[in-house]
């Protein structure tokens, strides 16, 4: 459920990038303050571990299909919230660069969806509360199951919100929610089971790892609470701006450009370059008696509908199609020429 650039609007993508960057900066400061230089290599190799672990599949019980671990909750339990958030974020960066999981702008969304909920909601408010100070098997199992399911409900809900707010997809909010949430209830349960099994394994083999993580976590819940409150406020604020954008200006950058250039509508630029080129066309439309003209016009462009006001910007005339072909050919040709020249 990686969010992707292709489904994002710049406003939503940018806002989420800002939120994630802010959280990364905050966590970096926290980790540096902890002054535990053991954590430097530990975070690094555990990130690599998560990356590798996500490549190993297991058979999902009762379905026969295979799945892999998400690992957000696992890392948070092992590393505590700040280090875990950074580690999860780093894994997502590598995935976006090397495996095209999402894309670069969507990184903000992905880091938030997959890192924030386990580290700053499930861990302090569910896991720690339920496990208490001396973990035993029952408490651990319950705490992890609940945390995993909650994380895997909130994360996909984030994806839904981001997608719907961006408006590239036509999926209505309600349908999308109904599609995503039940599936992720099942995925969350499986993730919980696997996480319980792995944590139990570690707990039996090296109990001091879990104990250490419990102690190393945020001491009081106050700093975490501050973070959560700060983020809720930020989210509301950003949400407000985004919805403003979404309602008045479906296209954020265009709106911004119009503001900057002082033009009411970008169509106005037709008088500029468009106009010049149109003139040029008329002048260069030589050979008026050329035989092509006598042929019936197979796909001349007067059929563009005007029911949608976006349709005006669509660029869907035959001219558009022909131009597209030429542009593509030109792009690849230029590549070829450059390559040959070397």
């Amino acid at each position: 459920m990686h969010m992707a650039d292709a489904l994002l609007s710049p406003a939503v993508g940018g806002a989420m990038c800002a939120v994630s960057a802010g959280t990364i900066a905050y966590c970096s400061r926290k980790v540096r303050q902890e002054l535990d230089d053991k954590k430097v290599p530990l975070m690094g190799v555990l990130g690599a571990f998560l990356f590798a672990a996500q490549m190993i599949n297991f058979t999902i019980p009762a379905t026969g299909s295979s799945g892999h671990i998400g690992g957000g909750m696992l890392l948070t339990i092992l590393l505590g919230p700040y280090a875990a958030f950074l580690t999860i974020a780093s894994v997502l960066v590598v995935q976006s660069l090397f495996f095209a999981d999402g894309g670069l702008l969507a990184l903000g969304c992905n880091i938030f969806n997959m890192g924030f909920f386990p580290a700053f909601l499930a861990y302090p408010f569910i896991y720690k509360k339920m496990v208490g100070n001396n973990p035993n098997q029952t408490r651990l199992t319950l705490a992890i199951m609940v945390s995993a399911i909650v994380c895997l409900q909130l994360g996909p809900f984030g994806v839904v919100l981001e997608t719907v707010l961006s408006g590239v997809s036509s999926l209505p909010f309600s349908t999308f929610v109904l599609l995503m949430q039940p599936i992720h209830l099942a995925i969350g349960a499986v993730e919980g089971l696997v996480t319980v099994a792995v944590v139990t394994f570690v707990f039996k083999a090296r109990p001091e790892i879990l104990q250490g993580a419990l102690e190393a976590g945020p001491t009081g819940s106050r700093p975490v609470r501050t973070v959560v409150v700060a983020f809720l406020v930020a989210a509301l604020f950003i949400g407000g701006i985004v919805s403003l954008f979404a309602s008045k200006n479906p296209d954020g950058l265009e709106w911004a450009i119009a503001k900057v250039t002082g033009k009411e509508e970008l169509e106005a630029s037709k008088q500029g370059l468009h106009g010049v080129l149109a003139d040029l066309q008329q002048k260069t439309a030589f050979l008026p008696d050329y035989s092509f003209r006598k042929q019936p016009e197979p796909k001349k462009s007067e059929t563009v509908p005007v029911q949608k006001d976006e349709a005006g910007k669509v660029g869907t005339s035959a001219a558009g199609l022909v131009g597209t072909m030429i542009v593509l050919a030109l792009a690849f040709l230029s590549g070829l020429v450059l390559k040959k020249r070397k």
């Binding site: 370059l273 080129l277 022909v322």
Partner: peptide, 8 residues
């Protein structure tokens, strides 16, 4: 694309 197409 549009510009080129129109031109052509």
């Amino acid at each position: 694309s549009q510009l080129l197409g129109k031109l052509v």
